[in-house]
Design a protein around this nucleic acid. Structure first.
Lengths: 241, 241
DNA sequence: CAGTGGTCTAGACCACGTG
DNA sequence: ACGTGGTCTAGACCACTGC
């Protein structure tokens, strides 16, 4: 049954979707937590199971929620494996490269012009900066600079040793759920300091990957620039559909 | 009602999906053609509209078919705009770069070892090779080698001038529908002949993009290697979800 | 076993594009 | 006005998981 004075004529299932997002965003439903069954959702919102299901399906498509048959539907939780699968696009032959990383402690600073633009911040905002080298079999191959809006990541500066995959930390320690990212890729030559950090010759061609990661509502929450020295048959893999 | 002796217990909607794919693959429904309405499909296969709809939804997700509200559902047709949107990932600032191309006529040849591996061909198979330079404002910026299994592209060698976007031609002239692709990306230095073709200095860093495009059933139908000279704020854009 | 998501039905009405 | 896809209902049974 559709109510007579329908709010802006938005489909019911999208309205339900929005309410569900709100509960997740508010933290009422924590990462990894079981959310109500489709039938319960239907009852709570006064819609049929089919409509509740459409709402949940939308969330699944956005990676906000995960369905497990026979178990239930859970708030998406970043795991190491998951983050590798979704966000680590550098491969060695057919194998995904998983790296270790050696990072400096996050450093607070006033956001630069570029940081303000990429992270959608106003003048005067502060950021946390992380620098690190990612290694594979003790061989450094990615030099990385990461910037985060300080306001969204309270307490992160206290972390001394950060893991290689960060989005689990963002989610658990700071309640920031990364749901998508864009990467802009170019080819550059290693300058002297980069070459030194990666233990290669200056002038070696590198892949420069600039990523902006976004949370719910498309809010940019991380800007990172990675300089990658790809050996032999290593490459960045993109899927086009 | 589900029949008692259900074929391999595959969901009905997937069985319907398969039948629809078969009709498209056979050419019974041509590119751009209107396919039967969901209600007609439901009647033809003896299922409800909901089930027919699930089958069509699966095809939409695979880019095999396109829904247009109020009009109907159509077999996917590669247009220039569409191919740009889906497959041209090189941008200049926020704008997608659309190029012109100057191509040599396709040349038949015996498939090399690499071509056999990438295109999944047996020894002795032949390929068509296309070489071209893609230009923007009369400035060459991509040098490209393309290999196609000759068996799938009869008559293509007769084409003298090929457009920059090829998948429309593949589809209309050769009934090959590209539905997905993978790109492996690395950074390389321009060698002498590449530098000459792109009118740049040898040793300039280039983006090397190696693409395998696939048709229905995951069959590889095109292998291409692009060497891209990206100026100023040009870049390759990847979306991660 | 009970409860979940996954599939499926047989309807209904709405929103949209074309004639 | 008509036919399309888009939304929605109120059921049903199946397949899977954990207890």
């Amino acid at each position: 049954m559709t109510s007579p004075n329908d709010a802006a004529r938005r489909p019911r299932y999208l309205q339900v979707r929005e309410q569900l997002v709100a509960r997740i965003q508010s933290g009422a439903w924590a990462p990894g937590q079981l959310i109500p069954s489709e039938i319960d959702i239907a009852k709570q919102f006064g819609v049929s199971q089919g409509t509740a299901r459409m709402a949940v399906t939308a969330l699944v498509a956005e990676n906000i929620v995960t369905r497990r048959q026979g178990l239930g539907t859970f708030v998406y939780e970043h795991t190491r494996e998951d983050e590798l699968e979704r966000f680590a696009r550098v491969f060695n032959g057919r194998e995904r490269i998983d790296a270790d990383s050696r990072s400096w402690q996050p450093v607070p600073a006033k956001a630069s012009r570029v940081e303000r633009r990429e992270l959608d911040l106003v003048a005067g905002c502060k950021v946390l900066r992380i620098r690190r080298v990612r290694v594979r079999d003790d061989i450094p191959f990615i030099l990385e600079r990461i910037s985060l809006p300080e306001a969204l990541f309270p307490g992160l500066a206290a972390h001394h040793e950060l893991p290689d995959m960060l989005y689990g930390i963002y989610q658990r320690a700071c309640a920031v759920m990364v749901v998508e990212a864009e990467e802009r890729i170019t080819a550059v030559l290693a300058d002297r300091s980069t070459a030194k950090a990666l233990r290669i010759a200056a002038g070696t061609p590198l892949l420069r990957i600039e990523r902006v990661a976004r949370a719910l509502q498309g809010k940019p929450v991380e800007w990172r620039v990675s300089l990658c020295h790809l050996s032999a048959d290593a490459h960045y893999l993109a899927r086009l559909k």
